[in-house]
């Protein structure tokens, strides 16, 4: 009862197929990781090089957001099936959080 394999005609074939799929996914994750490192290095380099504040702030924020999307969708598997509710609630959290941050940088000025 514990192991329901909807697609398993021949267990050995399914097993090898799954191993292969996992290995492919792993490759994707290593690529993701490389890009995350790359983004991080660029962000630090931009600050280290001393560009204008008006360039750096949006630039590093954009890199951070892209990195977090990678992290969520590849490392935390949000791109997989069965994550609809997780996505709904994460995005709701992001929305509420964004409103809070927006408030605190706009209408707290005393």
């Amino acid at each position: 009862m514990a192991n329901l394999q909807p697609n398993s005609g021949d267990p050995k074939v399914t097993y090898e197929y799954r191993r292969k799929k996992h290995a492919e996914e792993m490759r994707m994750q290593v690529i993701t990781f490389t890009m995350m490192i790359f983004f991080t290095v660029i962000a630090f380099a931009a600050v280290g090089a001393g560009f204008s504040k008006w360039f750096i702030v949006p630039f590093v924020l954009l890199l951070a957001i892209v990195q977090v999307i990678f992290q969520l969708y590849y490392f935390m598997h949000m791109s997989h099936k069965g994550h609809a509710e997780a996505q709904l609630f994460m995005y709701s959290g992001v929305l509420v959080g964004f409103l809070t941050v927006l408030t605190f940088v706009t209408i707290i000025w005393w």
Binding site: V96, T100, T103, F104, I108, W110
Partner: peptide, 12 residues
């Protein structure tokens, strides 16, 4: 510090 921060958190 800023006392308005509490007000916002409380009402959020």
């Amino acid at each position: 510090g800023n006392t308005i921060i509490w007000e916002h958190f409380f009402w959020i």
